[in-house]
Simulated scan of single mutants.
Amino acid sequence: MTDDLFHIAHAEQWEKARAIGRYEQSTQGLSLGEVGFIHLSTSEQWPGVLERFYADVDDELVLLTIDPQRLSSPVRWEAPEGTDEQFPHLYGPLDAGAVTATRTL
């Protein structure tokens, strides 16, 4: 069994993505097309991501729980510039069917 992965999303963007079956937002204010991948996190990493990158967001946010076995695009573990910590990056759209739970943040 593979551990779940997580992504913080604006609730409105997630609802639109569910309607078309795929999510293509990379991170706060940037799309998959602009960045080249979707930022994901582990269960230990997402709280820090929320604090660092979404603290000033007034919109409703949701935490997406993702089953990596259901993804049709590859996940690569990479360290952002300036750190040794490895984060999962999804190189393609997030299939709505890979999201097993959502939680309002």
Score class of each variant (00 low, 15 high):
residue 1 M to H: 11
residue 2 T to Q: 14
residue 2 T to D: 12
residue 3 D to A: 15
residue 3 D to W: 00
residue 4 D to N: 12
residue 4 D to R: 12
residue 4 D to G: 08
residue 5 L to D: 04
residue 6 F to L: 04
residue 7 H to I: 02
residue 7 H to C: 12
residue 8 I to T: 07
residue 8 I to S: 10
residue 9 A to G: 05
residue 10 H to E: 13
residue 11 A to L: 13
residue 11 A to W: 03
residue 12 E to S: 15
residue 12 E to T: 12
residue 13 Q to F: 12
residue 14 W to V: 05
residue 15 E to Q: 15
residue 15 E to C: 03
residue 17 A to K: 05
residue 17 A to I: 06
residue 18 R to F: 02
residue 18 R to V: 14
residue 18 R to K: 15
residue 21 G to W: 10
residue 22 R to W: 08
residue 22 R to S: 12
residue 23 Y to L: 05
residue 23 Y to G: 08
residue 24 E to I: 13
residue 24 E to M: 13
residue 24 E to F: 00
residue 25 Q to L: 13
residue 26 S to T: 08
residue 26 S to N: 10
residue 26 S to I: 03
residue 27 T to G: 05
residue 27 T to Q: 14
residue 27 T to N: 14
residue 30 L to I: 08
residue 31 S to P: 06
residue 32 L to H: 04
residue 32 L to Y: 00
residue 34 E to I: 03
residue 34 E to Y: 09
residue 34 E to N: 12
residue 35 V to L: 11
residue 36 G to Q: 07
residue 38 I to P: 00
residue 39 H to T: 09
residue 39 H to Y: 11
residue 42 T to P: 01
residue 44 E to Y: 07
residue 44 E to F: 09
residue 44 E to A: 15
residue 45 Q to V: 01
residue 45 Q to M: 02
residue 46 W to C: 02
residue 46 W to H: 10
residue 48 G to C: 05
residue 49 V to S: 11
residue 52 R to G: 05
residue 52 R to N: 13
residue 52 R to K: 15
residue 53 F to K: 06
residue 54 Y to L: 02
residue 54 Y to S: 02
residue 56 D to P: 05
residue 56 D to R: 12
residue 56 D to W: 08
residue 57 V to R: 14
residue 58 D to L: 13
residue 59 D to Q: 14
residue 61 L to M: 12
residue 61 L to C: 06
residue 62 V to G: 10
residue 63 L to P: 03
residue 63 L to F: 03
residue 64 L to N: 10
residue 64 L to I: 01
residue 65 T to A: 12
residue 65 T to S: 14
residue 65 T to G: 10
residue 65 T to L: 07
residue 67 D to Y: 01
residue 67 D to F: 01
residue 68 P to R: 02
residue 68 P to D: 07
residue 69 Q to L: 13
residue 69 Q to R: 14
residue 70 R to Q: 12
residue 71 L to Y: 08
residue 71 L to P: 10
residue 72 S to T: 15
residue 73 S to T: 05
residue 76 R to P: 02
residue 77 W to G: 07
residue 77 W to S: 00
residue 77 W to E: 06
residue 77 W to L: 04
residue 78 E to F: 00
residue 81 E to W: 11
residue 82 G to Q: 05
residue 83 T to S: 15
residue 83 T to F: 04
residue 84 D to M: 11
residue 86 Q to K: 14
residue 86 Q to W: 02
residue 86 Q to D: 06
residue 86 Q to I: 01
residue 86 Q to E: 13
residue 87 F to Q: 06
residue 88 P to R: 01
residue 89 H to P: 00
residue 89 H to F: 06
residue 89 H to K: 13
residue 90 L to G: 10
residue 90 L to M: 08
residue 94 L to F: 03
residue 96 A to E: 09
residue 97 G to R: 01
residue 97 G to H: 06
residue 97 G to Q: 04
residue 98 A to L: 07
residue 99 V to H: 09
residue 100 T to V: 15
residue 100 T to P: 03
residue 102 T to F: 09
residue 102 T to V: 15
residue 103 R to H: 11
residue 104 T to W: 01
residue 105 L to S: 09
residue 105 L to A: 05
